[in-house]
């Protein structure tokens, strides 16, 4: 029985989300495992959002922002990179494993790259197997994400984070 991971991708409006759109219109295939959460800028992604995604049952999470130096908000993606780095360590400490979280950068024109990343991450998590949470948390933990994240989706993925 093959395991189909649940993956959350926090994509910034100006680059990664646009790249996802492009991938869609280019008819590039990428796994439906990836649910996209659109955010104005990766700088908006806070530690709590990444943790909540795991609490809600994600097997893998990634943040995709503009190329470094090209952030619409100048350095939002640099901040995101730092937060991802610190949460990776946290995930290592608590036994979830930092490799389940990643930071990617791409421009709006990189539809191909978007699909690649989605495939790459899905494959990685497939290899790692399901998130090691032995207990389901989604009922008891209240969701802090809804108010802060717009859940607009490109083409086909539906998102409920």
């Amino acid at each position: 029985m093959s395991f189909e991971p649940k993956i959350i991708a926090f994509c910034c409006h100006y680059c990664a989300f646009a790249a996802a759109d492009l991938a869609g219109s280019m008819r590039l295939s990428y796994p439906s495992n990836v649910k996209i959460v659109k955010i104005p800028c990766t700088g908006r992604v806070d530690v709590i959002h990444l943790l909540k995604a795991f609490e809600k049952g994600a097997d893998g999470v990634y943040v995709a922002g503009c190329l470094e130096g090209n952030c619409h908000y100048i350095e939002g993606n640099i901040w995101a990179k730092k937060r991802v780095k610190s949460v990776k360590k946290l995930l290592d400490d608590i036994g979830i494993g930092g490799e389940r979280l990643e930071m990617y950068n791409m421009s709006a024109a990189m539809g191909q790259r978007f699909a690649e990343v989605a495939n790459e991450m899905t494959e990685r998590i497939r290899q790692l197997g399901p998130s090691p949470l032995k207990r389901n948390l989604s009922d008891e933990s209240n969701d802090g994400c809804e108010e802060t994240c717009s859940t607009e989706t490109p083409e086909r993925s539906t998102v409920e984070v």
Binding site: I48, F54, K134
Partner: peptide, 23 residues
């Protein structure tokens, strides 16, 4: 408030990984 949220979330995840029942 923010750090409370992050710590509680981290502890919840850690407990979930270890299979501990704690609220």
């Amino acid at each position: 408030e923010k750090e409370v949220g992050v710590l509680a979330s981290t502890l919840r995840l850690a407990d979930a990984v270890d299979g501990n029942e704690r609220e």
